[in-house]
Write a protein that binds this DNA or RNA. Structure first.
Lengths: 214, 214
DNA sequence: CTTCTCGGATACCGGCACTATCCAATCATT
DNA sequence: AATGATTGGATAGTGCCGGTATCCGAGAAG
């Protein structure tokens, strides 16, 4: 398969594919001679993955490169590779540790993990990007004067834990490590918007049930 | 309160506040004379809301303007105002209806709503942005060859419905319509990243429980 | 009276995801 | 063999977006 065919089959313009090649999101094709390279199904698949990450997951190009680097790194075990790839994803501003709301949010999240008995997560405190995202969001809530903390979040956390159990069960259904890692990345990137969409649909449904279409 | 004070109390630069005023994200202050305007606590609160939407929710400036327009529109009832504001939020590409994966995803989502008995959501088919997001995400999954459809999504949808019930219960705890609407918007914008963070933390926790830190 | 600060208008900036153009080598067709 | 299209590679340019910087003349503060 040559560039033009890769382009038509993926629906991505030649110029954009060249851009991705330059940026290292897509491995070079097998060079046949000075002016021709050959691409295979694996390139097509990777290209679709990249597109999904960028368009649906709104992941920045630089982050896609980083994530794929981890996915392709055979020197690490599955768990580490997965963790590294997922930790590269988030795009949250760093919390300002001098802010009193941020410090309060830290305490609040600590209390939440305590209450939930998430012992492992507690060890990840202040390292995990997810932890920091939570702190930032919580601080913003409090800054706006809403009473929102461990108590309100606990039932949500319980539901999210059950969601995570589903995630891992689904992942384990795939036979090979490579497929599991790829599925997990996709889960984080595509399933997350899907979940969000389900969440909003559920809100619309529940809202309609309670209040009708007034 | 004058511009400079609004700036220091919010931590937002004067230049940026001027930009928000220009863009209509923040109402003009009360004009005292040709060179002075007076801002109040409401401006500060609105400014913090705008910042949270932009920085934490990554909502584009134009969308913030649209959402706030709905929030401030007193001519509509609470339910409609809320729906309008929430529907303005998403930033998903339009599904390409000619694509076979997209058509398959449509059928799959229809089957899902059927199975769940979400009757109201079914009426919103192809209008609701959330519905379209779901279709797009599902189509991307299938295009990549993953077996992912109504069957896999149903348990997630169930959990998301319970999340939505929590959302509305929390919203109803606020006494006035205005507060309820604002809380709901914030819920969609700040609670969603918080939920996502909880989800990832839960994944880390569950993953550590299953596989340790290998 | 002088210096500061105000609000308002306008121009500019840097990052990002592409997109367009050019080039010489080579392929496909006549 | 001639010719026109296509290839990969390099480089420059585009459009959008969120924000900055600069300038201005009117008024406030000391």
């Amino acid at each position: 398969m040559r560039l033009a065919e890769l382009s038509t089959r993926s629906g991505v313009s030649v110029a954009t594919i060249k851009y991705y090649l330059r940026e290292g999101l897509l491995p070079q094709g097998r060079q046949i001679n000075a002016t021709t390279s050959e691409y295979d199904e694996e390139h097509l698949r990777r290209l679709r993955l990249v597109r999904a990450m960028i368009q649906i997951g709104r992941v920045p190009v630089a982050t896609v490169r980083e994530v794929l680097g981890h996915v392709d790194d055979d020197s690490l075990g599955r768990t580490i590779r997965l963790g590294a790839a997922l930790w590269a994803l988030p795009q949250v501003p760093e919390p300002d540790e001098d802010d009193e709301y941020v410090r309060a949010a830290h305490r609040e999240v600590g209390a939440l993990l305590d209450r939930l008995g998430w012992q492992h997560a507690q060890q990840l405190t202040s390292i995990s990007p997810a932890y920091r995202s939570l702190v930032v969001a919580l601080a913003a809530f409090r800054r706006l004067g809403f009473d929102w903390g461990a108590e309100q979040l606990a039932p949500y956390a319980e539901l999210m834990h059950r969601t995570a159990v589903l995630d891992l069960d689904n992942m384990e259904a795939y036979p090979s490590d490579a497929e599991q890692v790829e599925f997990a990345i996709l889960g984080a990137i595509l399933n997350e918007p899907a979940l969000q969409a389900l969440h909003r649909l559920a809100q619309e449904e529940e809202s309609a049930r309670r209040y009708g279409f007034e």
